[in-house]
């Protein structure tokens, strides 16, 4: 998580898990603390594509 950042504004992201498998979040949402954008996590892969 420390290495991850918002691709739009480079803000820090926080993770809201929905479904986890042990130590890994399979489904969830990443929230940017700066620009308030959110990005889905699907099947363990964060979708950080812009628009």
């Amino acid at each position: 998580m420390k290495i991850l950042c918002c691709p739009a504004c480079r803000g820090d992201l926080s993770l809201e898990p929905v479904r986890e498998d042990g130590r890994e979040v399979l489904e969830g949402t990443l929230h940017c603390s700066k620009c308030k954008r959110s990005y889905p996590v699907r099947d363990g892969i964060p979708d950080l594509l812009l628009g």
């Binding site: 420390k2 950042c5 691709p7 739009a8 480079r10 892969i45 964060p46 950080l48 812009l50």
Partner: peptide, 17 residues
């Protein structure tokens, strides 16, 4: 780890690699 992202807008923090 894998991330869906664009190489023109890397979802990677400054000075981390």
């Amino acid at each position: 780890e894998f991330r869906l992202g664009e190489i023109e807008n890397l979802p990677v923090a400054d000075a981390s690699a």
